[in-house]
């Protein structure tokens, strides 16, 4: 039982997919789920707090360019972490970048959860034939990773944060379908659903009354995991110059705009946004793992 979710869908379908660089992690840390939850929760909370604070205050304006200090080192002229290639304050950009990160994740994961959850429940409740069809489609869908789909969308429409978010969201839908379906199957075989059926409750009523509340935990776990994927995908896209626009503070965009400094011998400007991305991804990953460990025994073991 390396991966509870995939085994629940049965070995007949292809393996649980992973996208971008984060595969769903094996739930190997059961001994101390609290530690994961606390660490992950703290990091995520930190990102949220920074994002909120940056709404009202950043040390410098994020568009101000200090024409006397191009890519200056940390501590120069009141710039805590220095300035970037165009003289903007790195610390301020990092703070405001947290907003973009959260915003992108929210929209992308929102799309995926809102579309994927009902489809997953449907797949778990319908006849075998339909289940098979839905699972085949999700299999196929999974062959379009978020980044690839986002690049495709950027070709057809103007590349923008919005098209990127939609693409990432659409690409993440199947992972929700699978997770929710496997949870639904478990719930559907439970005594109380059987009882409700005998009592003449119809499908939609069962879905809303019994299935949805019970798979909600799984959805939340998946939201956390998908959030990490979305953050990575946004960073990658913006780094390629196909995500956040020129005046949108974004960690990926910072990497893009400052990339020539690597050859020029000032790599430090690139480290900050890189570390920010890694930290946020780590936070959501840990949070997801921690939550899953909390939920799994009850749901899967039922």
């Amino acid at each position: 039982m390396a991966e509870p979710v995939s085994t629940a869908t049965g070995p007949a379908v292809s393996p649980e997919p992973a996208q971008a660089a984060v595969a769903p992690l094996p739930a190997a840390e059961r001994r101390r789920p609290g530690a994961l939850l606390v660490t992950g929760g703290t990091i995520v909370a930190l990102v949220v707090v920074v994002a909120v604070v940056s709404f009202f205050w950043t040390p410098w304006s994020t568009i101000y360019t200090d024409v006397l200090h191009w890519h200056a080192g940390p501590g120069t002229a009141g710039h805590l972490l220095g300035t970037d290639i165009r003289g903007r304050d790195v610390a301020s950009l990092l703070m405001a970048g947290a907003q973009t990160t959260l915003y992108v994740g929210l929209l992308a994961v929102g799309i995926a959860a809102v579309v994927g959850t009902p489809l997953g429940i449907l797949a778990g409740m319908t006849s075998r034939r339909w289940t098979e069809v839905i699972l085949r489609i999700t299999d196929l869908w999974l062959a379009f990773p978020a980044l690839l789909l986002a690049l495709t969308f950027a070709t057809i429409w103007k590349s923008s944060l919005t098209s990127a978010m939609i693409a990432i969201g659409v690409a993440t839908i199947p992972s929700f379908i699978r997770v929710v379906r496997s949870g639904t199957v478990v719930v559907m075989s439970s005594d109380y659903v059987q009882a409700a059926r005998v009592a003449g409750r119809r499908g939609p009523a069962i879905a809303v009354r019994h299935v949805l509340p019970n798979v909600m935990g799984l959805v939340i776990v998946q939201v956390s995991v998908a959030y990490a994927i979305a953050i990575l995908a946004e960073a990658a896209l913006s780094y390629l110059g196909l995500g956040a626009g020129p005046t949108t503070p974004s960690w990926g965009r910072m990497l893009f705009e400052n990339s020539s400094l690597l050859q020029a011998g000032y790599p430090v400007v690139l480290l900050w946004p890189g570390l920010a991305v890694a930290l946020a991804v780590l936070g959501f990953n840990l949070l997801g793992d921690g939550l899953r460990d909390r939920l799994d025994p009850r749901l899967v073991g039922r």
Partner: peptide, 18 residues
């Protein structure tokens, strides 16, 4: 490994180049 999973490959690349 938990840390490694969170780091995007391109960041590793940048660090290695640096």
């Amino acid at each position: 490994t938990q840390l490694g999973v969170a780091v995007p490959a391109f960041l590793v690349g940048i660090l290695l180049i640096a």
